[in-house]
Nucleic acid binder design. Structure first.
Lengths: 229, 229
DNA sequence: GCAGAAACGGACCGATCGTTCCACTTGAGT
DNA sequence: ACTCAAGTGGAACGATCGGTCCGTTTCTGC
């Protein structure tokens, strides 16, 4: 490989002109941040990221001046996947099937990456550059909705805002239930799809609800994990 | 009035034996905390509460040793209202109507008090004493669900966990959309109820979705308000 | 009124956050 | 190999958090 640099950040500019060790550290930071954000959410401190990456706090700050900059780099590819999901759904010959699959897919993405759930719905400091991509995907989503309605399976009273509402609700469920009841979100999405469906539309089976005590455990004890490595 | 003390905290022990000024300050703290929690959520600092109440941080800490203690005192009456909502729903001659009304009522309580939304669903440090009351209300909820199912209007695949899921999802929507799109939660609840309803059940009309730009504004800009008074 | 206890609040503590400074190390062109 | 800019990380900074200490003020029973 001629430039082994930015295989980690496909969408970003390759961060050219960096010295070899600097580029290596940059990747280690991204990898560490990716894992930490995925498991802990966006609340993790910059110091934690630096420690996990095995670099000094100054190095982290030098490579990514602000938190937002780091978020942009980390979630660039996830945002690509998010945009791709719409395109894939549009490719489905059955728009309604593509539509329900799309909803499940993006909610699954939220569930598998708590940080990304926050980015999509909660929007913490709101990373700037990711916004463009999101807006782009939105246009395709509108087309998908139109097609799904034309099949008669998606209710006429469905609006594209409902997708956003679902994402927000799902983000809350994902971050709250965490790993104590990690499949709770499927139940939520199942319910929502059932409400979106016009009478007679094929509805994916409603996933089982989580076990009550799992759900309860999930609600008690959030916030502080404070795990030291 | 012989003891003008605890008109603010009906459920709590009247905090007897406090000096007049101490009791007055206690009430001012509770009032300030109530307002701050309602508008800002549970994230507000103890110092903010003290400042808003016009007392020193030490006074706050003396009256309510820990954060949890303050939460218990502040949300005691709200939790009463929460419990009462089930009883009221049980009193409805039409269990399905009572059930849907109940869901709308408790979600409205979350919407009108962001702190309470967190208490119900997110459960931050989880106030101890409030738990008992919540568990108590849960029993009545089970009865309400049973009755609603017996009418044939509530689907058989509905479980009591679904109520918790709705509360969690709604809490996320409420805290995220905030005051930019304050009625978004109604749309969510409307969808969920439509999914809960068996075919042929009377369904409350689906509230309109929020205006797209309001919803968008709600997602950008959360977190920091940092208002100084 | 007056003494003494009860209550007050500003100052202070230790911890954690994001960020900056700076003396030292290291990679890369010659 | 040698040099020097590029890169490094530990220390330090300022802000904010929850919580405590202690000298001062204020209420209350006599």
């Amino acid at each position: 490989m001629t430039s082994p640099t930015s295989d980690q950040t496909p969408g970003q500019q390759p961060a050219t002109g960096l010295r070899a060790d600097a580029e290596r550290n940059r990747c280690r930071i991204l990898e560490a941040a990716r894992r930490l954000y995925a498991t802990e959410g966006l609340g993790v401190s910059m110091a934690s990221v630096a420690r996990k990456a095995g670099v000094g706090k100054a190095t982290l700050s030098r490579r990514f001046a602000t938190r937002e900059e780091l978020l942009n780099a980390v979630f660039a590819d996830r945002m690509d996947a998010y945009a791709d999901a719409v395109a894939e759904a549009l490719a489905d010959p059955d728009p309604w099937h593509g539509f329900t699959g799309y909803l499940q897919a993006i909610c699954a993405m939220q569930a598998s990456d708590r940080g990304f759930a926050d980015i999509l719905a909660m929007s913490f400091p709101t990373a700037e550059a990711l916004e463009a991509r999101r807006a782009e995907a939105y246009d395709q989503l509108l087309e998908l909705i139109t097609r799904a309605k034309s099949t008669g399976h998606l209710r006429e009273d469905f609006t594209h805002q409902d997708v956003v509402i679902l994402l927000i609700a799902n983000a809350g469920v994902v971050t709250t239930t965490g790993d104590a009841a990690p499949d709770t979100w499927r139940r939520l999405v199942g319910h929502m799809i059932r409400s979106y469906a016009a009478p007679g539309a094929p509805i994916p089976p409603l996933p089982d609800a989580p076990r009550p005590d799992d759900l309860y455990r999930a609600m008690v004890r959030i916030s502080q994990t404070a795990s030291r490595t």
